[in-house]
Amino acid sequence: PPPPHVTEDTLQQRLQALIEGARESWTYAVFWQLSHDFAGEDVSNTAALLSWGDGYYKGEEERNSRKRKPNPVSAAEQEHRKRVIRELNSLISGGGGTVSSGGGSSDEAGDEDVSDTEWFFLVSMTQSFVNGSGLPGRAFSSSRTIWLSGSNALAGSSCERARQGQVYGLETMVCIPTQNGVVELGSLEIIHQSSDLVEKVNSFFSFNG
């Protein structure tokens, strides 16, 4: 039976199980959680928002990294990404609750190039979508799965998030609505629509609370 409360840990486990148990090669999975944003002091004036609930980043398989035409990232952009990673590392290891604008301490992970999909995943943590807009918002409001495969489908989408995903090398993006949010998956490979995945999401994410 579904648990009364879904903790971050169980969300993480479900996202991980979804990706690691799939035959297809998914790069990441994100759960966009439904919440209500109170606009001003009027409590009746609320907007349904889909914001970061949790995410699981599997990473790029070597065969994908090799065959993929790299998005030319400028040296300045790569430096910027590394600096952000270093700062976030020092924030997390320092146990603080804020990100400062100062330089973080250098370490091995902070000196390694930050891939496009890592960056896309990281930036996603700062994003949220009003119900009805953006890829997750549209999937939720229509209660329908959105399945975009092929770079043309992503590049031609009216959703900025799909176009952004294509720029970062994604070939497939999927948003599957659930009771309390939307599960989004992305892949560097073309993956065709399957009812298996949708059914799995429905069974893994059919909880209350």
Binding site: E8, W52, G53, D54, Y57, G59, I92, A109, M125
Partner: peptide, 26 residues
């Protein structure tokens, strides 16, 4: 400075930890 919500902080910590593991094992 930017305050981080708890859910994102936990996700971020996991992401950075896994990234460290990937980099050091490569």
């Amino acid at each position: 400075t930017v305050a981080l919500p708890q859910a994102r902080k936990a996700s971020l910590a996991r992401f950075l930890e896994k990234r460290k593991e990937r980099v050091t094992s490569a």
